[in-house]
Simulated assay, not measured.
Amino acid sequence: MIRLVIVDDHPVVRDGLRGMFSGDGDFEVVGEAADGAEAVTLVEAVRPDVVLMDLRMPRVDGVGAITSLREKGNPARILVLTTFDTESDVLPAVKAGATGYLLKDTPRDELFRAVRSAARGEAVLSPSVATTLLGQVRSPAADPLSSRELEVLGLVARGSTNREAAAKLFISEATVKTHLLHVYAKLGVKDRAAAVAVAFERGLF
Rank of each mutant, 00 (worst) to 15 (best):
F21S: 05
S22I: 09
S22G: 14
G23L: 11
D24T: 10
G25I: 13
D26Y: 03
F27Y: 10
E28P: 15
V30C: 03
G31Q: 04
E32V: 00
A33Y: 06
A33L: 06
A34Q: 09
A34P: 01
A34L: 12
A34M: 05
G36Q: 06
G36I: 05
A37I: 15
E38R: 06
V40G: 02
V40W: 07
V46E: 03
V46N: 07
V46H: 07
R47C: 14
R47Q: 14
R47S: 14
P48F: 03
D49F: 02
V51F: 01
L52T: 04
M53S: 08
D54V: 03
D54H: 02
R56V: 03
R56G: 08
M57E: 11
M57F: 06
M57C: 06
P58H: 00
R59M: 13
V60P: 13
D61F: 05
G62Y: 02
V63H: 02
G64E: 03
G64M: 00
A65S: 01
S68I: 11
L69G: 15
R70K: 11
R70L: 08
K72R: 10
K72W: 07
K72Y: 13
G73F: 00
P75S: 09
R77A: 15
R77F: 14
R77P: 11
V80E: 03
L81S: 02
T82G: 02
T83N: 03
F84A: 03
D85L: 00
D85N: 05
T86P: 06
S88K: 15
D89T: 01
V90M: 12
V90P: 08
L91P: 09
L91M: 09
L91H: 07
P92R: 01
P92V: 01
A93I: 07
V94T: 08
V94S: 12
V94L: 01
K95T: 12
K95F: 09
K95A: 15
A96M: 12
A98N: 02
A98K: 00
Y101R: 01
L103F: 12
L103K: 02
K104P: 04
T106D: 05
T106I: 07
P107E: 11
R108V: 10
R108W: 11
L111D: 04
F112Y: 04
V115E: 13
R116C: 04
R116Y: 04
S117H: 12
A119E: 08
R120D: 12
R120Q: 06
G121P: 11
G121V: 04
E122P: 00
E122G: 13
E122I: 06
A123H: 15
L125W: 01
S126T: 06
V129Q: 00
V129N: 04
A130F: 01
T131L: 07
T131P: 09
T132Y: 01
L134C: 08
L134A: 01
Q136G: 13
Q136N: 13
Q136E: 15
R138E: 06
R138V: 14
P140H: 08
A141Q: 15
A141N: 08
A142L: 06
D143C: 08
D143V: 13
L145R: 06
L145C: 12
S146P: 14
S147R: 14
S147G: 10
R148C: 07
E151K: 10
E151T: 13
E151F: 08
V156F: 08
R158G: 05
G159C: 05
G159M: 10
N162I: 11
